[in-house]
Design a binder for these strands. Structure first.
Lengths: 239, 239
DNA sequence: CCGCACTGTGTAGGCTGTAAAGAGTTCTTG
DNA sequence: CAAGAACTCTTTACAGCCTACACAGTGCGG
């Protein structure tokens, strides 16, 4: 109930293209976008932990502190990075069914996350406010807007899909990492026995978890199909 | 292909109760469990960021460095914390159907995550190796072991469910946080217009996202039902 | 032209995880 | 039983992190 209203960060406002009035001093030599792009490149190459203020600044040939003219804090930078990495939303066309659109939306989402896995580990306290991510929501919501679903149902449906995609990609990356499950199996073998953990032991020995990235794509399609089926049913029931 | 085999950490081995031979020096005054419990309490109370080695040690009345006799690194501690917070797996009984069991498993999973939200933000590079989490997998796998599904399918099914539960809880916490969506709406209102983002604007005004925690439980049940339906179909198709 | 708003820089401080060395305790071995 | 090895906890130290703050230079508004 204690609604603490915090304003949008300056960096986000710049992304939305709002003009500040009365700009007097020297013109900025960077922009939030260039900074974000450099930081994204760094995260793509060396992981999220490598994204320190110093490292990003160095990559741009500026001092660490100069970044704070554009970004309020590291967290602010991370939020901006996510929006930058997402890029503009996919265009879903007009003619096809909501189901085809949502499927394409989900696939684009998965591709985005697979290309920038660190996004999954950026923990932003608040829902997204960058123009790209809001754009993604826009086209996703729009795909469902003619179905007769309530706003509530539309929102829930899209969030379900996004959530499922995220967890699916994350699982895929975790278990498909090079030798990850092999190593896992080896560690477990030294502690578990057929008596205490028979089912786990069996599944481990079957090698079911060691099939790498292919399984991920299949799994994504599988669960996604289920969610879409459910949405379809909800629509059929008069929304 | 370059399978770098890393052994299980000493802390994990202690959790599994393996005995070290020839213990000579003074007896340890703590245990991995007590440390983990203190750290969990801290995380529950003040969030994951508050869990520093110094803070945990202080809470136990020891020096920071003493923790490193029990735990190899902060990351190691985090892994142990997750296992500790999870606790023993739910007992699913014997008589009921696999579907009832899985539903209960998912509900217990959601309850666990809702009680310790920071678990969602612990990023462990490897699959879990603690006794509690492996126990959760055991009972989850066991619920599906009589269905005729392949080990591969069993593993995928349970991971799907866990993934969905996780994302559902995370979404719920993010959007249901006190005043979060209200604040979000206010921020967006200052940047978007009916022209550029008509659907988002409409959904925002409808207040669809501001209904708090109740929506989460419903949403969880909704998507979960879909996944279970899908598993049921797969089973019916001769596994 | 003056002054203010703005830029990028340099310095500094507090906090972090953890490496390394030391002092004390207990078990094992000769 | 004595001696040394192995173990525990402490102390000290350090590199790296984010960022607050004071500064010097720049360019527009009055």
């Amino acid at each position: 109930m204690s609604t603490t209203t915090s304003p949008m960060s300056r960096a986000m406002r710049e992304l939305w293209g709002v003009r500040e009035e009365g700009r007097r001093g020297p013109k900025p030599s960077m922009s939030v976008r260039t900074i974000a792009a450099a930081a994204v490149a760094l995260a793509d190459a060396e992981g999220l932990e490598a994204v320190t203020m110093a490292a990003v600044a160095k990559r741009l040939g500026f001092t660490t502190m100069s970044l704070y003219r554009y970004v309020e804090s590291r967290q602010d930078l991370l939020d901006v990075m996510v929006d930058e990495a997402a890029g503009p939303p996919p265009s879903l066309g007009r003619r096809r069914s909501w189901r085809t659109k949502l499927e394409e939306w989900a696939r684009a989402d998965a591709a985005f996350l697979a290309a920038h896995p660190w996004v999954l580990h950026v923990r932003s306290g608040t829902p997204p406010v960058g123009p790209n991510l809001v754009g993604w929501m826009e086209v996703g919501f729009a795909a469902l807007s003619d179905t007769g679903l309530s706003p509530q149902q539309i929102a829930s449906s899209l969030l379900s899909i996004d959530g499922y995609v995220r967890s699916s990609v994350e699982m895929g990356l975790r278990y498909a990492a090079d030798g990850a499950t092999a190593n896992w199996a080896e560690q477990l073998r030294s502690v578990i026995s057929e008596d205490t953990m028979p089912t786990v032991a069996g599944i481990l020995e079957s090698g079911a978890l060691e099939d790498g990235t292919d399984g991920m794509a299949e799994e994504l399609a599988f669960g996604l199909g289920l969610l879409l089926d459910g949405i379809e049913q909800t629509i059929a029931r008069r929304g």
